Amino acid sequence: MQFGEGGAGTFSDGKLYSQVKDPKQYSRKVLNEFVAAGAPEEILYVSKPHIGTFKLVAMVEKMRAQIIELGGEIRFSSRVDDLHIEDGQITGVTLADGEKLYSKHIAIAIGHSARDTFEMLHNKGVYIEAKPFSVGFRIEHEQSAIDKARFGPNAGNEILGAADYKLVHHCKNGRSVYSFCMCPGGTVVAATSEEHRVVTNGMSQYSRNERNANSAIVVGIDPSDYPGGPLAGIEFQRKLESLAYELGGSNYDAPAQTVGAFLRNETPEKLGTVEPSFKPGIKLTNLADALPDFCIEAIREAIPAFNRKIKGFAFDDALLTGVETRTSAPINIKRDNDSLESINTKGLYPAGEGAGYAGGIMSAAIDGIKIAEAMALSINSKTAL
């Protein structure tokens, strides 16, 4: 779910909007490229464009075909296992099968869950910092309940479609809790990338017509919560994901709890009216054991606060499923503000979510364009010399 053609964003709601500053209007180029690849033209003018998983898959296939037509080469199942660095300059890479590829300009856009590659980069001396990210649960409501709360008597009107929401609450303990990757008419999906661990994510199709709405409800954390060096956030994530695996029954079912039971600190005996969408299945348990106490305290404060904004959000039968740990990369591969190269490895261009410079499809695409331009400028300047 976290890797492969299209990256982790393939299995999502396919949201095509972001909050990044875009004075050069890169986002317009991205949207035009997406339409050329088969996205509906409405993404050029609706306020919150999205395309869903199935359309994204077909679009990325078309993009791949265009890259090949233009002379590019795509290699699947070709993990980079080593970097060649001479006097602080990148000169090439070694693949898992032993093949070596040589270049002094290499973009590294590895996504937010490439933990083995993070470790390899750190071991090679590429400068990395730990950075803030967020952890929490997925919450599910019946989509009709969210529609009614958001649209009132107009709920169900096909012009409006499935309602979404965006929520944030600043807690008494100094933490912030917010909704993330809200998927109207979607499903909660399994997104682990390592054995004996459980991770949740959310996705929607273009139609957004599944029974439930879901979103992550997450708590912001920072390196002071997981001291131990640049890669300590990875171990923090792994600990929570392993615990979720155990709480779910050690069979890749996810631990879950009704919202009412969570707020009362009880273990629910049965589900209510909200049917879980997570596959392969869920195990009812007490999620108070799934996250650090400060996270549980913050989420318990936030859900009633969200209920004041969206009536029914704290509905007893709504369902929480754990754990959501991959909101963004736990590291930042620092780069120079001007050249966009790694600050201590010339010719290496950290890009996108895995480098800590994006947080979604649009921001990652925009960052990719910036990196491509920076590499082209560097190559042209060296060619001129």
Rank of each mutant, 00 (worst) to 15 (best):
H105I: 04
L160H: 11
D82C: 04
V93I: 15
P132H: 11
L167Q: 12
F133S: 03
H84Y: 13
E119C: 05
A163I: 03
K131M: 10
G156N: 09
S113A: 15
S144A: 15
E158L: 13
T117Q: 12
S176E: 13
F133N: 02
F118H: 07
V126E: 01
K131W: 04
S113T: 15
V126T: 03
E140W: 02
K148V: 12
G98Q: 08
H169I: 04
L95W: 06
T91N: 14
I90L: 01
H169N: 12
G125F: 00
G98C: 06
Y102L: 13
L121A: 05
H84K: 14
P132C: 04
T91C: 08
Q143E: 12
Y127H: 00
R150E: 14
V93F: 04
R138S: 03
F118Q: 12
L121K: 00
I85R: 00
E158W: 07
I159C: 09
M120L: 11
A96F: 05
H105F: 13
T94V: 14
D97S: 03
L160E: 10
L167R: 01
A96W: 04
H170A: 11
H105A: 07
Y102N: 13
H84P: 01
D164H: 05
I106Q: 01
I128C: 08
E142R: 15
I139K: 11
I110G: 05
I85G: 00
A149R: 06
L101D: 06
E119D: 09
D164K: 04
V93E: 03
I90S: 02
R175C: 08
T117D: 05
N157L: 13
R138M: 14
F151K: 11
S103M: 07
E140L: 07
A130S: 15
R150W: 07
G136S: 11
S176G: 08
V135N: 02
E119H: 08
G156H: 08
L160W: 09
G111T: 07
C171V: 10
G136A: 08
A162P: 03
K166F: 08
G161Q: 08
R150N: 11
R150G: 02
G88H: 01
F180R: 05
R115M: 09
G111W: 03
G88S: 03
Y178C: 10
K124W: 01
K131F: 03
R175P: 06
G161R: 07
C171P: 05
L121S: 02
F137Y: 15
G111Y: 06
I106V: 13
K148N: 12
M120C: 05
H84Q: 14
T94W: 05
K166P: 04
Y165C: 11
V126P: 00
N154W: 12
A145T: 13
L160I: 10
D116N: 02
V126H: 00
G92M: 03
L101M: 13
N157D: 15
R138P: 09
V126I: 10
R115T: 12
V135Y: 07
